[in-house]
Design a protein around this nucleic acid. Structure first.
Lengths: 241, 241
DNA sequence: CAGTGGTCTAGACCACGAG
DNA sequence: TCGTGGTCTAGACCACTGG
């Protein structure tokens, strides 16, 4: 009997590991196993569920990734005392964001020029003060009205093709998403009162609250790009967990 | 030769699957395999890397989760044409957030009373208009100054213990994180100009831009809580990817 | 219909770290 | 020191879907 299915009569299409994870999750949510409790080890659970240990391992790792379990060698597996929950959101292509909202997308380049990085940026990116970067300001529009505007620095040293791209054809946002896989990204967002410049480019009153995203991406050759993205008032970012 | 180590002389401590993932990632980032290209199937890669197919499978699933690969039965594995990248952030206990910033934490309950949900909330949560909820307004302070304030609705029908908790002892935020594992959560955030009430409770000028989080969590019995969290100006939320 | 990924099993060795 | 999770292997069957 080398096959899992031979001893499971109807066999629903739900993978076994997910079923085990769901059952363990239920026991936690319904307090059958309480915060801090140690739960049976993988071998015991494998017996209970009639599964191989590898399958139980997969299920428990899922729950550990969710933050519901703490797993440590020798110490066993415990229900996390204060589950650290994570939420994930997608980094979209702005054009698709606009189009999914049912609006016609357009973007226009406000300015583009070669320039050395400002001091603060040079420090943050770990670049020399005299590095040659592309400074690009772009407005993304939906139905002809400003939707987001980005103030972006691009580093051709990390991504040589950047020097040859025409950003009027395809926005830097989209070009990068499609062509420049990154290894690491830092993201931060905060609220800000629109500056005079923000207000002008987004066509809103100064002082309006806007959501601002700062994102920097890196590959093995160094920082690719760092961008400040100012969103139109009313923009809502959603996530799930 | 049933052991992986016997045929790998030095064997660094990096798990094999991660090493394979790193190598495939490198080939993608460096354009050896281009967006849309089909890559060798699992069996071939297993041969190339001298690993079992299950190990290769694990590595490729990692990359698929990162959004770098598209995998489909029969069609094979391809480099994602427009990698959908995700970022994750942690849902913290506010007290720990404050303390990690080096401030003394305190919280105070502004108001607490039983009340039926407002119409909009009832719809959003799928509750009857006459449901009995706890409406709780709390201010979280760092070094005696307002840090965040929350306007929260709690549903004892989904979490009976809620009815007996003294939220002056432990904030609802912390009690929930520690005691009420949830199955699903919706999160949204946006920027807002502080209303008169926001301004009063956060001790700031009206109109200041604040970051607002809306979060609703659910368990199998229904919605547990829905909260509007208003953060002090200057608050920055960070994420990684 | 047949190739490819998805999943499971049984067995094994290893690394870590609590006791 | 030794129990527990971490990982790998070889083999197997299945589910899906492109050609």
């Amino acid at each position: 009997m080398t096959d899992r299915a031979t001893d499971r009569p109807p066999g629903p299409t739900t993978p076994k590991a997910q079923g085990i994870a769901a059952e363990v999750r239920r026991r936690i949510v319904e307090r059958e196993w309480r915060q801090g409790d140690r739960i049976p080890d993988e071998a015991d659970l494998a017996t209970e569920f009639g599964a191989a240990r590898a399958t139980v391992n997969k299920a428990l790792q899922l729950l550990a990734d969710e933050g519901l379990l703490d797993r440590r060698r020798r110490a066993g597996t415990r229900v996390a005392p204060a589950p650290i929950r994570k939420a994930t959101f997608t980094i979209p292509i702005i054009r698709e964001q606009v189009e999914q909202a049912g609006m016609a997308y357009a973007h226009r380049v406000v300015s583009q020029r070669l320039a050395p990085p400002p001091a603060a940026l040079a420090v943050r990116l770990g670049l020399a003060r005299d590095a040659r970067l592309i400074h690009l300001v772009t407005v993304h529009e939906g139905d002809g009205r400003p939707f987001q505007y980005e103030d972006r620095w691009l580093n051709p040293a990390a991504e040589p093709e950047l020097a040859t791209v025409d950003f009027r054809q395809m926005s830097a946002n989209e070009w990068l998403v499609r062509n420049a896989p990154y290894l690491r990204a830092d993201i931060a967002f905060h609220a800000a009162n629109a500056s005079a410049r923000d207000a002008r480019l987004l066509d809103i009153a100064p002082g309006r609250a806007i959501l601002v995203l700062q994102r920097t991406t890196w590959n093995e050759a160094g920082p690719i790009t760092s961008v400040r993205l100012a969103c139109h008032p009313g923009f809502v970012m959603t996530a799930e967990a």
